[in-house]
Design a protein around this nucleic acid. Structure first.
Lengths: 208, 208, 208, 208
DNA sequence: CATGAATGAGAGTTCATTCAT
DNA sequence: CATGAATGAACTCTCATTCAT
């Protein structure tokens, strides 16, 4: 092998450094010197491997997407729609089961940055859409298994994603209010409530 | 002899200024000069009426709590638990119905700041708890009306709050993914799913 | 008496306020708001009674001069030169004997301000000169009593003033180095050393 | 590969810049932009080489200590205690003989800052103690040479230090009162007065 | 690749002073 | 006399970014 570039290694170090700092200090609090220190590198080198601070954040978003998808794949081997749905929720909100509190804290900060930085919003939407599509398929299967029409798979998936994102919020922003184990338990109930409600939902149309 | 105080007026102006800027630029992007400009005041005067930037944020949190509660009170005149629950969800996620997209964007930024600033976290938790308590009482009534045990009112309320907070996130961070009218419709379904599931939830205990 | 102005009272309050704050925070640390608070007044009123901050300082210098002179007059009733010299040193460095640690700390800060503010320097020199003149007379009497020529009264007085000012410095800037009771004891010795040396000082002329 | 550091050079420049400005404008008057200008650097660079303004001051205190000690070593080659004592006083108050009026003005400002900044007080006390220890040894030798008990070396040294510090004060704060050449001449007399008084000081015990 | 010095803009904050009330 | 709101300048300090070495 020729003397290989260590760019990929460095980029990983830097993204990990951003994650470590951002989890505690937010995006603005994650300064280049702090990221460099956490990564064991010098500030100048950061800008050799990344054009600017924002592009590190984009890389982190992709990294988080990769790892949550990997975790999902590990957990779901079942063919049954309901089981896959449980596995999905496990993978996303089951903190302490392979998940990472730092990643969740970063994700909250990323959502806030998405409001103001268009490029970040695009990346945030992209990975959210990927996960939404996965979940939509799972919902379709679960609906089909339950003998319900799959027409509402999109809104059901969106509802579940909302509940998951909201649980993240409370977990990092108001941890004292959280009942242990609540998140997986309750979100699962909400998800299956939506699935079983699907056939009869026309009754509630007036409520929107 | 002495001048009459206009501090309350000024403080309101400043809080409104913070809200206007923060909705677009986040907390760190809302600099004192920008807030002052938005409020039609000079930067020096900001610090005459507030000790520091953080205390403006705390005041904004209280203001948001006040207005959302006021909106809730306006919408709920019914005695029926289910109707109150619908009204609550309306009040909180019914954007375009007296709600304010800026307020939602701010709330997202506040949750992110709550991670890193202890005083902000305290304030965030305080108002979340207030709303959680209100919702808990509504859930208790709805459960009682439906002939279900009210034991699970806390977790149900938490689940609904999660869905609402998560909907906020998507609305401001990934607006393109949102189906119009989805939020009120789906969160209402999830809420009633939890209510009607309450009596039979022992079956699902293994899923947590 | 007619409705008298309270200007003199207010000026005293303000000067006392400056002294209280300046003793701990220095001249720059003694901000108008802090002085006002210490004086139980409002910041705006400060500038009604004094043109600017510097003029409060000048007033304080005069006040300190007044009180140290008053203290000196109380202590010296003797006609004997040596006794008067002892009384003078007592009055100036005898902390704990009617003296005021705050006044000493202020005096140090005043000396530092004298370097940069010409008006302050003038005031500082003026009161130092007053005290120098008093001391010079005392030295002249002591020299005369001892049968020495009074020609060196000026330099002797200056030397004693130096020792006193230096003792102030150490007392407030390096209190841990001070041996209790050292100041009065040693400065008295140095003073009488100069007095008794006066007649024979020609021997040492080469040392300057 | 990596750049060689010029930090030491820059730190020296900055300390010199502080000294130049502080001698005229005091510590608070020596703003970062002024220091930078005097050092021929940009304000931002100041904080690259020093954590904060206070740490520049601490560095200056150490620098002043170094140079006064160096000056003392140059002047004293004698083994005779009395000669060393003369050399010490020369080194410390002999302005115009290798000394620096700016250094003296800074030293006055440093003493004033020592009152309010604990870290500065510590540094001030540290270097004062170093010089006190040196002087104490010299006094011990001089006392021994004169056939006196050395028990009082500490108080004698303190008294001389007081006189020196006080002379500094008058030199910069009330220069018009100073007689040329007075300082070295008179302090030397006071010092030798204390030395020769040592054996008979019990007589004066009542005067403290 | 890597270092770390350097820049310039801009942050939050404080202040002496003024002045309408 | 007295208040306290208001101003504008200046402060220390931090930062993303650049670039000579």
């Amino acid at each position: 092998m020729s003397r290989s570039s260590n760019t990929e290694l460095r980029r990983k170090q830097i993204v990990q450094g951003l994650m470590a700092i951002m989890a505690e200090d937010g995006y603005d609090g994650a300064t280049i010197p702090l990221i460099a220190k956490a990564a064991g590198l010098t500030p100048g080198l950061i800008h050799y491997h990344f054009n600017n601070k924002q592009s590190i954040l984009i890389a982190l978003i992709d990294h988080l997407n990769d790892s949550v998808q990997k975790r999902f794949l590990e957990l779901t081997k079942k063919n049954d729609g309901a089981e896959q749905l449980r596995a999905f929720i496990q993978a996303y909100v089951g903190l302490g089961k392979g998940s990472d509190a730092r990643a969740v804290a970063c994700w909250i900060a990323i959502g806030a940055e998405a409001v103001r930085q268009p490029e970040v919003r695009t990346a945030y939407q992209r990975v959210t859409k990927i996960q939404l599509n996965i979940l939509e398929e799972i919902c379709a299967r679960a609906l089909s298994d339950a003998g319900r029409p799959i027409k509402q798979k999109r809104e059901i998936a969106l509802g579940i994603i909302c509940a998951i994102e909201g649980a993240y919020r409370l977990l990092v922003s108001a941890p004292e209010l959280i009942v242990p184990g609540f998140a997986v338990r309750t979100i699962t109930k909400m998800a299956f409530g939506l699935i079983s409600d699907a056939a009869v939902s026309n009754r509630n149309k007036g409520t929107s």
